[in-house]
C-alpha cells in the first residue's frame, strides 16, 4: 500500500464500520418485528382458546357428551354429532389413505417424468387449493344425486375423502422424496427388484412422513363444515346414525347451528362444543404423533 491510497483505505474502513453499526441496529429492529409476528398470533390464539374454554366449562359434563339436541339450551347434548364425526373421519380416512398413498407411490416411483405424470401433478396441486365448499358441490352432484347415495354418511365421508386426498398425496410424495438416493441405489445394487425396494426400503423409511400427512388430513376432515352442509348433513338430529347409509350430522355443524341461534344459553353450548372438538383433535393428534415416533424408532 503506497502513500496515496492509505488514507482512502482508512476512510473506507471507517465507513464500513459505521454502516455495520447501522445495519446491526436495523437487524435488531427486524428481529423484534419477526418476534412480534410470531407471538402476536400465538397470544391471540391462546386468548381465544382460553376464553372459549372458560365460557364452555360450565356446560361440559357427562350429560352434555351423552345428550341429544334439545330446544332447551341447558338440556342439549352433542352425542349424535360426536358419533357422526367419528364415523365420518373413520370412513373418510379409510378411503383417502390407501388411494392417496397408492397415488403417491405411482407418481414418485413409477410415473417418472412422463407428460401424463406432469399433468397429474399440476392437477393435484390445483386441487389442493380449491375451496372446500366446491368439494361439497361435487359431492352433492356425484355422490348424492348421480350415484344415488342420498344424504348419507357414506356420501359425506366420500366428499371429505376427496377433499383431503391432495393433502395425503402431496405429503406422502414429500416423505418418499426424503429417502436418500444412495439407499435406493444400494438396494438396487444388491439385486432387489423395484417392488422389493419400494416395499422394504422406501415405505418403511417414509412411514413417519406419510403418517404426519395422514394426521393433517384427518384433522382437516374433522373441522370441515361447509362441504358437509352442502352435501346435506342434518342440523338437528335426535337419533344416532346406524350404518353407512344413515343420515348424519357432525360436530362443526352442531356448533355452527348453536352459534347462529339468537337465544341465550346456546352460545355457551357452542363454546362447550368447540372445547370438545379441540380436545378430540388434540387427542387424535397426540395418538398419531405417538404412533409416528414408534415407527421412527423402528425405521
Amino acid at each position: 500500500m503506497n502513500e496515496a491510497t492509505a488514507p482512502r483505505a482508512r476512510t473506507a474502513r471507517a465507513e464500513l464500520t459505521a454502516s455495520r453499526a447501522g445495519s446491526k441496529r436495523l437487524e435488531k429492529a427486524f428481529l423484534a418485528l419477526c418476534l412480534v409476528s410470531v407471538f402476536a398470533p400465538l397470544a391471540l390464539l391462546l386468548y381465544l382458546v382460553g376464553e372459549t374454554t372458560l365460557d364452555g366449562l360450565g356446560r361440559l359434563s357427562w350429560d352434555f357428551l351423552t345428550g341429544y339436541p334439545s330446544r332447551k339450551a341447558e338440556k342439549a347434548g352433542i352425542l349424535p354429532a360426536l358419533v357422526g364425526s367419528v364415523y365420518l373421519i373413520t370412513l373418510a380416512a379409510g378411503m383417502a389413505l390407501p388411494v392417496g398413498v397408492g397415488a403417491a407411490i405411482y407418481l414418485e416411483e413409477y410415473g417418472g417424468r412422463s407428460r401424463l405424470a406432469r399433468l397429474i401433478e399440476v392437477n393435484i396441486a390445483n386441487l389442493a387449493g380449491v375451496p372446500s365448499v366446491i368439494y361439497g358441490l361435487l359431492g352433492l352432484g356425484v355422490f348424492v344425486r348421480f350415484l344415488g347415495l342420498d344424504r348419507s354418511l357414506l356420501a359425506g365421508a366420500a366428499t371429505l375423502a376427496l377433499l383431503v386426498l391432495p393433502i395425503v398425496i402431496i405429503s406422502s410424495r414429500e416423505a418418499m422424496r426424503t429417502v436418500q438416493d444412495n439407499v435406493r441405489e444400494a438396494a438396487y445394487g444388491l439385486g432387489a427388484t423395484r417392488w422389493q425396494v419400494i416395499r422394504s426400503v422406501i415405505l418403511p423409511q417414509a412411514l413417519p412422513g406419510i403418517l404426519t400427512g395422514a394426521i393433517l388430513a384427518v384433522s382437516r376432515a374433522m373441522g370441515e363444515t361447509a362441504p358437509l352442509i352442502v352435501v346435506g348433513a342434518l342440523t338437528y338430529m335426535t337419533f344416532l346414525p346406524d350404518g353407512p347409509m344413515s343420515p348424519f350430522t357432525a360436530l362443526p355443524i352442531q356448533i355452527f347451528n348453536w352459534v347462529s341461534r339468537p337465544k341465550a344459553g346456546f352460545d355457551i353450548n357452542a363454546a362447550a362444543g368447540i372445547t370438545v372438538l379441540l380436545l378430540t383433535l388434540l387427542a387424535m393428534n397426540a395418538t398419531a404423533i405417538w404412533i409416528r415416533q414408534r415407527a421412527q424408532r423402528r425405521a
Partner: peptide, 27 residues
C-alpha cells in the same frame, strides 16, 4: 352456497342450479 344448502333445495330448481353456478365461478 352454504346458506342456500341449509334450506331444502330439490334437484333441478333455480336455487339448485344457482349454487352450482356460484361454485363454478368460485372455482
Amino acid at each position: 352456497i352454504v346458506q342456500v344448502s341449509m334450506g331444502d333445495t330439490p334437484a333441478g330448481t333455480l336455487e339448485y342450479r344457482t349454487i352450482f353456478a356460484v361454485g363454478a365461478t368460485l372455482f
